[in-house]
Write a protein that binds this DNA or RNA. Structure first.
Lengths: 141, 141
DNA sequence: TATTGTTATACTCTATAACTATA
DNA sequence: TATAGTTATAGAGTATAACAATA
């Protein structure tokens, strides 16, 4: 059901609209990432590692706002899938790097992401479009 | 961590910013609703029932995009808390109505919501502020 | 002392399937 | 036949606490 001011008194609230827009869009992105066997969070990690190889698990968690405790099983899944390897930095930390298969998968994630982002922006009336990203960035911390 | 274009290549993606902004803001709203013993979804139901008394469980679910199966335990919780009652419409459907205690709680939800929404908008640079709601509504269905 | 990586655990939201009863 | 309400169940994201090992 699209935003319906007449019947839904919550539809006029930016915070509520933010939640509804995010859940709807993320559900759609989840379906697309599912076609290549990835969850959205796993896909976001592949994009980050591709852009910044050598980050540690803790680094990735801080940047993507994922708790260290939740990074462990996430990395285990994409490692089991052969997409990443761990290179020891010292006896405590490990750099996360993409494998060849991981780089291939990352490129697929990038293609899906670019198409998704383009379609998302296309849905927004032109006069509002360029304001979305800066407005959202101001709400994020 | 706020949006950081230099270190987070995902920060320039509107869809990713949408997710981050929504999770951050909803976590904050969740804390505030928690002070009156409610979850965000429960609070949204109280606001809707207050504005449109007599809706059925199925109606509420369709408007708020909550599955019928998930409405059952949600309504059971706020009924057990004495905030709503059910009035039979026929032998199959029930109208959901606020009790006196429910109306009091709804007013508290409204106050929290108004303060939250005002603070949310205040964070957005003025030139972008009025564009957020229409942009989000265009993404929601 | 602080940080890394990990395990265990729990809560919330969301999703589907299946069932009974009634419109 | 379709809809209302419910139960059971599972997947996903998120959160805290606790631990061993190392910086």
């Amino acid at each position: 059901m699209p935003a319906d001011l007449a019947n839904d008194p919550l539809a006029a609230l930016p915070g509520y609209a933010l939640r509804r827009a995010a859940t709807t869009q993320m559900a759609q992105l989840s379906v697309r990432m599912g076609t290549i066997g990835l969850r959205v969070t796993e896909a976001s990690v592949l994009l980050l590692i591709g852009a910044r190889p050598g980050l540690t698990s803790a680094d990735i968690g801080k940047i993507l706002d994922i708790q260290r405790a939740n990074m462990a099983p996430l990395l285990a899944r994409i490692e089991d899938a052969g997409l990443i390897v761990r290179a020891p930095i010292d006896r405590k930390s490990q750099a996360i790097l993409l494998t060849r298969a991981g780089e291939t998968r990352r490129a697929e994630v990038e293609a899906i992401t670019n198409a998704f982002e383009a379609e998302l922006l296309a849905r927004i009336p032109a006069e509002h479009r360029d304001h979305l990203l800066p407005a959202l960035q101001a709400l994020w911390d």
